[in-house]
Deep mutational scan, measured.
Amino acid sequence: HMTFVALYDYVASGETDLSFKKGERLQIVNNTEGDWWLAHSLTTGRTGYISSNYVAPSD
């Protein structure tokens, strides 16, 4: 899985979204569905959809 880092804080707007904080590391589970990616937070252990605009590759 690809690992990304959050560029900004994000508060989930629905049950399927994932809230995260700036600097949080996220593993991308599925990024084939446009701008919203299914991600797993390595910080909180939660999984949900994130906006690809809010993250950048961590490598």
Rank of each mutant, 00 (worst) to 15 (best):
H1M: 12
H1A: 12
H1F: 13
H1P: 14
H1C: 14
M2V: 11
M2S: 09
M2R: 12
M2T: 11
T3N: 07
T3Q: 10
F4G: 01
F4S: 01
F4V: 12
F4R: 01
F4Y: 15
F4P: 00
V5P: 00
V5D: 03
V5N: 02
A6Q: 00
L7T: 05
L7K: 06
L7V: 05
Y8R: 11
Y8S: 08
Y8V: 10
Y8G: 06
D9Y: 02
D9V: 03
D9W: 06
D9H: 04
D9F: 04
Y10L: 03
Y10A: 04
Y10P: 00
Y10I: 06
Y10K: 04
V11P: 04
V11M: 09
A12M: 04
A12H: 04
A12W: 02
S13I: 14
S13L: 12
S13W: 08
G14S: 14
G14Y: 11
G14L: 11
G14F: 12
E15Y: 08
E15T: 12
E15A: 12
E15V: 09
T16D: 12
T16I: 08
D17R: 12
D17S: 08
D17A: 09
D17C: 14
L18H: 02
L18F: 07
L18M: 11
S19Q: 05
S19K: 03
F20N: 00
F20V: 07
F20P: 00
K21Y: 07
K21P: 01
K22Q: 09
K22A: 12
K22I: 06
K22S: 06
G23V: 02
G23D: 05
G23M: 02
G23Y: 03
G23E: 02
G23N: 04
G23C: 07
E24W: 13
E24S: 00
E24I: 05
R25A: 09
R25P: 07
L26V: 05
L26Y: 02
L26Q: 01
Q27C: 15
Q27E: 13
Q27Y: 14
V29N: 05
V29H: 15
V29Q: 08
V29R: 05
N30C: 12
N30L: 09
N30E: 13
N30S: 14
N31G: 13
N31S: 13
N31P: 10
T32L: 11
T32F: 09
T32R: 10
E33F: 10
E33V: 11
E33A: 11
G34W: 06
G34L: 07
G34I: 06
G34F: 07
G34A: 11
D35A: 09
D35C: 12
W36K: 14
W36P: 13
W37K: 03
W37I: 08
W37L: 07
W37D: 00
W37Q: 03
L38Q: 04
L38V: 06
L38Y: 09
L38I: 06
A39I: 05
H40I: 15
H40K: 15
H40Y: 14
H40T: 15
S41Y: 12
S41W: 01
S41R: 00
L42E: 06
T44R: 00
T44M: 03
T44C: 03
T44S: 10
T44I: 05
G45E: 03
G45I: 02
G45N: 07
G45S: 03
G45W: 02
G45F: 05
R46D: 07
T47E: 07
T47P: 02
G48V: 01
G48S: 01
G48A: 03
Y49Q: 03
Y49E: 03
Y49G: 01
I50S: 00
I50R: 00
I50F: 01
S51L: 15
S51Q: 15
S51P: 15
S51C: 15
S51A: 09
S51R: 15
S52C: 12
S52P: 15
S52T: 07
N53H: 14
N53P: 07
Y54M: 15
V55Y: 05
P57H: 09
P57A: 10
S58W: 15
S58F: 15
S58H: 12
S58M: 15
S58N: 09
S58E: 15
S58R: 06
S58G: 10
D59Q: 12
D59R: 07
D59T: 12
D59V: 12
